[in-house]
């Protein structure tokens, strides 16, 4: 192998099945984010619609919920659920379950806020015009409000997916073996034979995340342009 490749530690990736191990680590992280994304979108849609109802109780509860999520770092939430739940309720959650609970809790709030924002951004005149045309409440929602809401919501929701994928990298801090952890293991195992592995491995992890998120970001931006 050429000396340049060895000096920056890329050579480890071609040894054994190291590259495959890194990729499967990335998959472990992506699996958690995908489950959380699906749950968050479903829960967020329902919550967001509830929030547009003018009920004081819902307003207060949703306000507290959103504000909690807004100011608490996801890491703190992870620690509370993973370490706190075990202590306080005797629940022995696996790290995967704990992280799915936390990311869903966080993602649902973000999604609900996006849904609420998209719904209230539809001018009242749209509702009034539909009623004036003799549409029923359901028809107004189906043919007038929802199509416009979806167009505004879609780019933002897709953007949320990339944010959730990026945040999943935190799960290594509660001991899940994902791409960063696998990277560390590879570096440790090859400490003698390729001392510069840290550079090559972490640069690769960096690129892997970029490859996972960039297309989704581009899609979000494309849809945003189309909606405008």
């Amino acid at each position: 192998m050429s000396p340049v490749i060895e000096s920056i530690g890329i050579d480890v990736l071609f040894k054994g099945n190291n590259m495959m191990r890194l990729l499967s680590g990335l998959m472990a992280a992506l699996k958690i984010s995908m489950i959380s994304v699906v749950l968050s979108i479903v829960i967020g849609l329902v919550l967001g619609m509830l929030m547009t109802l003018n009920k004081p109780a819902i307003k207060v509860v949703s306000r507290i919920y959103l504000e909690t999520v807004r100011i608490m770092p996801q890491m703190v939430l992870l620690f509370i659920v993973y370490f706190g739940a075990t202590k306080a309720m005797g629940l022995n959650l696996s790290a995967e379950t704990a992280s799915i609970i936390v990311f869903t809790f966080w993602g649902s709030a973000e999604m609900a806020d996006l849904v609420r924002g998209a719904l209230i951004s539809i001018p009242v005149i749209q509702y009034e015009s539909s009623y004036a045309l003799g549409m029923t409440g359901l028809q107004t929602y189906l043919y007038v409000i929802i199509p416009q809401t979806v167009r505004r919501l879609l780019p933002l929701a897709i953007n949320l997916i990339t944010r959730m994928i990026k945040t999943t990298s935190l799960v290594m801090m509660i001991g899940i073996v994902e791409v960063l952890k696998v990277g560390q293991q590879i570096i440790e195992a090859n400490r003698k034979s390729s001392p510069n592995a840290a550079f090559g491995v972490f640069a690769t992890v960096f690129l892997l995340y970029f490859i996972a998120c960039w297309p989704i970001s581009l899609l979000s931006r494309y849809l945003e342009k189309k909606a405008a």
Binding site: K166, S169, L170, A198, F202, V205, F206, Y209, C213
Partner: peptide, 13 residues
């Protein structure tokens, strides 16, 4: 399009 944790690992390690 990359997480801060990964950026820090690259910069620090």
């Amino acid at each position: 399009n990359t997480p801060l944790l990964v950026q820090l690992f690259f910069i620090y390690f």
